[in-house]
């Protein structure tokens, strides 16, 4: 009964992942049936140490899953600002747009994750990209009643001008 590399990554089992990688380094970029890599599982479950370990081993943070999900969108949706910043530090595309109709910023707004919104804006996330259904980050914040995020977005706009 052994866990897959994806489950081990999600559960933060760094030493076990290291052991698996030493036997088969291709596991680093192994995508599951939906296209998710171990790095994406770790990002989705907020495993910061695992994310850093996998990046150090050379995991590609730019890989996207079948529906164009990325490690950055998963971390932004989960509100894991430390992982968001780690990924942004590795040159990922900050405005990846997936088939679910969202960018990392839109997911952070949707999840009411103020610090993630701030981190993404500070790194130049595009506030004009709308969701599939036509919601900009600002319109989404207003519609969801996420007042603090609305304020962060307004302050950011004021800073731009």
């Amino acid at each position: 009964d052994s866990l897959s590399i994806h489950q081990l990554a999600a559960q933060g089992e760094v030493s076990q992942v290291a052991a698996h990688l030493s036997k088969d380094s291709s596991l680093l970029s192994r995508q599951d049936e939906r296209g998710f890599t171990p790095l994406m599982w770790a990002a989705a479950f907020g495993e910061k140490a695992m994310v850093d370990f996998l990046l150090e081993k050379g995991a590609d943070p730019k890989t996207v899953a079948r529906e164009r999900e990325s490690a950055l969108t998963l971390a932004s949706s989960g509100g894991y600002v430390d992982i968001v910043e780690s990924l942004l530090g590795h040159g990922v595309d900050i405005d990846t747009y997936d088939w679910n109709g969202g960018t990392p910023l839109l997911y952070a707004v949707r999840g009411n994750h103020v610090k993630c919104v701030e981190a993404l804006l500070a790194k130049g996330a595009d506030m004009t990209i709308e969701s599939d259904s036509g919601y900009s980050p600002m319109a989404l914040a207003v519609a969801l009643g996420h007042k603090k995020i609305q304020k962060v977005l307004e302050d950011h706009i004021l800073k731009l001008y």
Partner: peptide
């Protein structure tokens, strides 16, 4: 030993429940 398995990551539908703009 009982293995605890995490469910596969998924992203929420961003505008679920909101009126279409």
């Amino acid at each position: 030993s009982q293995l605890s398995l995490y469910t596969s990551p998924s992203l929420p539908n961003i505008t679920l429940g909101l009126p279409a703009t």
